[in-house]
Design a protein around this nucleic acid. Structure first.
Lengths: 335, 335
DNA sequence: ACGGTTCAGTGATACGGTTCAGTGAACCGC
DNA sequence: GCGGTTCACTGAACCGTATCACTGAACCGT
């Protein structure tokens, strides 16, 4: 039975009320209990279900939250997106997941599109937090930033990248690594990466010899990039700014017949579930994805429901030691 | 500038045309080239962008496609969802991704919700293809099934599971495995699994001693299930109906100090990118995810744009041999 | 008995497009 | 110069809900 959907008018007619009264009743507003019950019964009878489109047009609210991801090539970001999507669904909202492919220009375009799509709010993992369009966007709808901070948001779940970088680099240094290759996610035409700044500063502080390169998140691409770096045999360790990229290093090491951590140590960033399964397990910086998901969903819900207070949650990292980082031969513990 | 959006009426006024003419012009319908140009200019001038909500209400089309996934715990399904979502975005559509958590009841509820949300179509990875609500649903909107076949769909990308199972089991048998544990994804309160039927039939045909158990897709859960199975040390091989579950077997083997494939062989199903990175690499059945994504997107686009022909695409599997399956000691090649 | 509140419900309008039937003008062949 | 098409555009209805301003009735304390 491809039955035509019942409208609010039919319910009104069936109950002898006005459409307005039905509208109120179904949302539990300013009507008597008795009438509410009558309306509910009639609605059930007719199989009535309010049309979300019409509702959105009239009320200005769609029930949708935009989820703008930096790059879904990154498995960790995939998990994050799936988690947030689920969390929002529990709050009776839908997530519209979009992928910026690590491109700031596309990020801007997609943010625009999401706004045009009339989402009630956006959760953003900003590629370029300093971009000029953010503040403007934040004025027209509630934005929650995840990862890096953005000016004007309704709330933030910020990763303490400074601390994360320190954790990673200090660990490497403690084990004697000085020449370290750093692999950060490729971002098309980006000006400056906030996290990179921390890497530079921290390397300076620790007296490390850093060599920075960029890599896409995809396994094949990351493998290619890592291949070149490992083939040069310069660094004793590779610090990847995403576990996904570290996976590429593993693959490249396999290709080259290099052993991890025998020939080269690898440090990740994120702690994706698969990282523990590799041989050796990937030593990485853990951000507690569940906490991030919960915080993001909570902040977004609050903001979209008209919550006013701007909440700022800082996510603290933990070093998750597994087997991919070894002591440099001849290096004594302690220095 | 939180400017109020321009409406079609303002554009009409600016051009001296009627709103109807503007509507037609912007969609490139029955107006002179000259007028189209004039309208475009005015629209750009005013920063006009048609409101998708109002458009949806009037036209009955939302531009959204529902994506109903069986279980997003499964990393392979995550990749699939991300891929399809991207593909649809290229066709100027948005994907609404929902996760059924392997639960047929929830699958039904979500399908319902997606329809209520007025999506233009649905791409479904059915958990319970035989469920009664599918045909009814298919009558009210175009549905594309991915994986198993459903009655009444507008198109399908069907996996030849019969062939996939044959590939896997024959490979195991060729190497001398007879007692084989089969791990299929847990599905709450499901009646019968289509794929299981093939396993049974094929095991019968090949004279194998099959022991079927179910496992969730999540790594932790799958590990727990696999732990029990491996601890019993009965089977010489485990055939997992999803790479995600195989990952659990790897983890359990690690915990128990068992070697793969020395102590137990493991066979996967899907060929997730990470499967090649494990040690040893997971031997698995590859379905060519890119082809699936392309086919699903193509069929959905065709169906949503009013295409009429029902297309049926069959996806053929390939055996991807890596290192996780070994010959049973003492077994001669050929039998 | 009275003015003032609250309560339950109404009527009209707004939301911002799409679409259908219709209209005048231009154009066609003959 | 005439009926018939085609073209470019218009006016009005419509999609299905939310919400604002308002009303009549009941209820309040004095």
């Amino acid at each position: 039975m491809p039955r035509k959907r019942a409208t609010i008018r039919e319910v009104a007619q069936a109950t002898g009320l006005s459409p307005a009264a039905v509208s109120y009743a179904l949302r539990g507003l300013q009507v008597s209990e008795e009438t509410k019950e009558r309306v509910r019964a009639a609605a059930a009878e007719l199989g009535y279900e309010a049309d979300p489109i019409a509702r959105a047009l009239a009320s200005g609210r769609t029930g949708m939250i935009g989820l703008l991801c930096g790059s879904l090539e990154d498995l960790w970001q995939q998990s994050l997106a799936v988690g947030i999507s689920r969390g929002l669904r529990e709050k009776d909202r839908y997530a519209l997941i979009l992928d910026a492919f690590g491109d700031p220009a596309r990020e801007r375009a997609l943010a625009q599109q999401l706004r045009d799509q009339r989402v009630d709010g956006m959760i953003v993992q900003p590629i370029d937090p300093a971009a000029a369009f953010w503040p403007e966007l934040c004025e027209s709808l509630p934005v929650i930033a995840v990862g890096d901070s953005i000016a004007g948001t309704a709330g933030e779940v910020v990763f303490d990248n400074r601390r994360g970088v320190t954790l990673a680099l200090e660990h490497l240094r403690t084990l004697g690594h000085h020449r370290i290759a750093v692999l950060t996610p490729t971002r098309a035409s980006t000006p400056d990466r906030p996290a990179d700044v921390h890497v530079m500063a921290e390397a300076e502080r620790l007296g490390l010899d850093i060599q920075v390169a960029t890599s896409p998140h995809g396994l094949a691409d990351a493998t290619a990039v890592a291949h070149d770096i490992l083939a040069a045999k310069e660094p004793s360790a590779v610090f990847c700014f995403a576990d996904s990229i570290a996976y590429g290093v593993y693959a490249a090491a396999q290709e080259l017949g290099l052993s991890i951590p025998g020939d080269v140590s690898v440090m990740g960033y994120d702690n994706h579930p698969m990282s523990g399964l590799l041989t050796p397990g990937l030593t990485t910086v853990d951000w507690g994805i569940d906490g991030i998901v919960r915080a993001a969903v909570r902040l977004m819900s609050a903001a979209a429901d008209g919550g006013t207070r701007r909440r700022h949650v800082v996510q603290a990292p933990t070093l998750r030691e597994r087997g991919s980082v070894a002591r440099v031969p001849g290096h004594r513990q302690g220095l």
